[in-house]
């Protein structure tokens, strides 16, 4: 859509005090997602962190759905919840992460980290709210994120990056193999 329509939509947005149902749902799911994310980065049990990450990523998939991007939502569930978190759990197990509470899950500079993150959050939220407080997303009309629309644009306009991405994935595959291969000969000679 051209910006003119968006600006026209902006002109008569309903305001924050009369939320729509979609908005209420979005905010509630968003609060759950944010809470799960905060638990992910603060919990002292490493495996729980991975599980809270699942909740956070799943919440995000719901948010995608609410934003009418259904294909992205399913990809999110498949790839993140289905494979990435599983990989992370494998990593935790392979590095013999302690099960149960580990008191030293946070490093010494957590207060610095808290300060930086807080400052960044205040800045970002202030800027974003200042910029977009009157911006309205029109979710009605043609659905923006159907699988059809996404597939069409992906294979019509984004074919070349898509294929390049497959090469990138291949390189990452090879790199992961090379990195994790146990080089017995090399170690024996050390």
């Amino acid at each position: 859509m051209n910006p003119g329509i968006a600006l026209a939509a902006t002109a008569h947005h309903p305001g924050f005090l009369s939320p729509t149902g979609v908005e209420i749902t979005f905010v509630l799911v968003g609060l759950a997602t944010l809470g799960a994310a905060l638990l992910t980065v603060t919990t002292r049990q490493l495996v729980h962190a991975a599980l809270w990450l699942v909740v956070a990523l799943g919440g995000l998939a719901v948010e995608y759905l609410l934003l009418t991007a259904e294909f992205i939502a399913w990809v999110q569930v498949l790839i993140y919840v289905g494979s990435v978190v599983v990989l992370l759990l494998f990593g935790l197990m392979l590095t013999r992460a302690p099960i149960g509470r580990s008191p030293d899950a946070d490093s010494g500079n957590r207060w610095v980290a808290l300060g930086v993150a807080g400052a960044a959050a205040v800045t970002l939220v202030w800027v974003v709210v200042d910029a977009f407080r009157a911006t309205w997303i029109n979710l009605h009309g043609a659905v923006q994120g159907t699988s059809r629309a996404t597939g069409t644009s992906l294979f019509r306009h984004w074919v070349l990056p898509f294929e390049a991405l497959s090469v990138l994935l291949l390189a990452a595959l090879v790199g992961a193999i090379v990195l994790s291969r146990r080089d017995d000969g090399g170690r024996g000679s050390e």
Partner: peptide
């Protein structure tokens, strides 16, 4: 040698710059 310290300083600087620009 602690990468997190480096990264923290980097991000703090980025925030300061962003605030200054804003």
């Amino acid at each position: 040698g602690n990468v997190q310290t480096y990264l923290g300083a980097l991000l703090a600087g980025a925030v300061v710059l962003a605030v200054l620009v804003a």
